[in-house]
Design a protein around this nucleic acid. Structure first.
Length: 517
RNA sequence: GGCCCUAUCGUCUAGUGGCCCAGGACGCUGGCCUUUCACGCCGGUAACGGGGGUUCGAAUCCCCCUAGGGUCACCA
């Protein structure tokens, strides 16, 4: 069940099994644990995706847990924004906000008592100590260190080797004074390490670890503590997260060990870098916002396909439906090198999925974009947005557009009364010859029993062969008359989107206005 | 700077010692198709970071260097 990389390639890594004990025989439990301090980040979405894929692949459980222990940064709006992003992507969760579950509550701010209880246990057993050092004293220590190495207090002191030492490490404090709680690193062991499902063996010398803080002086837990307590409490079997958390896994391991808890399997995913090769960040990279892509008209399926292929592959396969991703997913095929964001590839995948997905599936978002565009452009005589016409439009425009927004923008002009004809196009295609062609075609079109793409295409061809003209001799004047320009989908589709009434109207109008100055 | 991780076309990647003078996709590009614009189809361009080993044989295993990224909070 737990995948470990092949023995031949990682001989040393096969010595240990990532998961031992009864949990490894039960269906996996995975979690996505975002901190609600903004929108759903693209890296978070990828992490959520991989967790979700593995859970769905194995028939396990996908949990969403909100890590809102930082009161200042967390907000309800962010929780909602993140959940909305997940819903948009179709990453449904089995336990978590909104759906509940046997391990509720799923927000850390509602689980404070359990962290304090665990911390008390650690203190009682010598694994942690109360530290009464105030923030002012910590600051003073920094200033003193800075002075000793000739740096200013604002310089990065860690670079110069600054290490905070607590005077309380070996004392027993038990007063009511505000204090933090630190984990006591035991120097006895020389190193801690674990087997990562994607990275392999990760090891760190104990000396490189500090007595990390477990509890703040306001009683709120810090990441390492809350994460471990909840992952254990919620019986998470696989911790799948970004490689930025690789280092914090070591102190967390110490916590598992102190508690005597079974350690979950870990999988640290490579990071997604911006075009500047730095970790995709909200501040510097607008593309880090998942919802921006929704606004830009990217289909969720396309974004999913794009994300799954950063850091994961299945031979030469590039296109994945959800089912295909789920069926093929496995941590053994996750790469270890960071990937760079590639807008062109996303666009190309988006175009692929706009063509491949049933138009009906795209319809709601195209309609929404269309209504929005129409509002903005304040077209005077809007025509009703009929589903059948929209479906034809989406099918016809998908191969010609880079996004759903582009489809919608193009369609706006099809759903209002009348059209302004470009003078250049009129000069080129609506001369006496063009008008004559229009006249013949108009009559044939008006006589058409039905108004469907293939049928209309046929009518144009019939008129063309009947009048010994090339198809273009008919289609281009028609296109200009009906769209105002020389570029549009196939003429049958173009007429069909407009509908009989509006198409004929525009043709007649073009014939009448030929003499206009 | 300490520590951790990583290293194949510009980008995402295939590759688990011989099938690789390295395959696919995006991009760029030549052509075909065509009523316009696209789509599509056929072709081209372009990479194993450097140096040492191990081996009959290395993109693949080992070491060093270099480069890149991450992390070092009373954030997560």
């Amino acid at each position: 069940m737990v995948q470990v990389r092949g023995d031949s390639r990682f001989p040393l890594r096969s010595c240990k099994t990532a998961v031992v004990g009864k949990r490894s025989t039960m269906p996996p439990r995975l979690r996505f644990a975002p901190s609600p301090s903004g929108y759903l980040h693209i890296g978070g979405a990828r992490t959520a995706l991989f967790n979700w894929l593995y859970a769905r692949h194995t028939g396990g459980t996908f949990v969403v847990r909100i890590e809102d222990t930082d009161q200042e940064r967390s907000s309800r709006e962010s929780v909602e924004a993140i959940l909305e992003g997940l819903r948009w992507l179709g990453l449904n969760w089995d336990e978590g906000p909104g759906v509940g579950g046997p391990y509720a509550p799923y927000a850390q701010s509602e689980r404070l008592a359990s962290y304090r209880e665990r911390v008390d246990w650690l203190i009682a057993h010598g694994h942690a100590y109360r530290d009464y050092t105030t923030e002012a004293e910590t600051r003073a220590q920094r200033v003193a260190f800075a002075a000793s190495v000739g740096l200013g207090p604002k310089d990065d002191l860690r670079r110069a080797g600054f290490k905070f030492k607590s005077a309380w490490r070996d004392k027993i404090g038990n007063t009511a004074l505000p204090h933090i709680v630190r984990f006591r690193i035991q120097a006895k062991e020389d190193s801690v390490g674990f087997e990562d499902l994607v990275v392999g063996r990760v090891e760190k010398a104990m000396l490189d670890l500090d007595d990390f803080v477990l509890l703040r002086n306001d009683g709120f837990p810090l990441y390492n503590l809350a994460c471990v307590v909840d992952d254990h409490g919620m019986e998470i079997s696989h911790v799948v997260r970004g490689q930025e958390h690789l280092n914090s896994t070591l102190p967390q391991l110490l916590l598992y060990r102190a508690f005597g808890w079974e350690v979950p399997a870990f999988a640290h995913l490579p990071l997604i870098l911006g075009p500047d090769r730095e970790k995709l960040s909200k501040r510097r990279h607008p593309e880090a916002d998942v919802m921006l892509h929704r606004q830009n008209g990217v289909a969720p399926q396309a974004l999913l396909n794009f994300l799954v292929r950063i850091g994961w592959s299945q031979h030469d396969k590039e296109i994945f439906t959800r089912k295909e991703m789920i069926d093929a997913f496995d941590f053994g095929a996750v790469g270890r090198a960071n990937g760079v964001w590639n807008t062109e590839k996303l666009a190309s995948l988006n175009q692929h999925w706009m063509k491949a997905l049933p138009p009906e599936e795209l319809l709601p978002s195209v309609r929404a974009f269309l209504e929005q565009r129409r509002e903005e452009s304040r077209r005077r005589d809007p025509l009703p947005l009929r589903d059948e016409a929209l479906v034809i439009g989406i099918r016809a425009l998908a191969p010609r557009a880079k996004s759903l927004v582009e489809i919608a923008s193009t369609l706006v002009a099809y759903f209002s009364r009348g059209v302004a004809i470009s003078e250049e196009a009129r000069a080129k295609h609506l001369g006496p010859e063009g008008i004559a062609a229009l006249r013949e075609t108009e009559a044939a079109l008006a006589a058409s029993p039905a108004w469907e793409p293939e049928l209309l295409e046929g009518v144009v061809e019939t008129v063309a062969s009947g009048s010994k003209r090339k198809k273009g001799g008919i289609a281009q004047p028609l296109r200009v008359a009906v769209t105002g320009g020389t570029v549009s989908p196939g003429i049958g589709d173009t007429l069909a989107i407009l509908g009989r009434g509006e198409a004929l109207r525009r043709i007649r109008e073009a014939m009448d206005n030929r003499a206009a100055p």
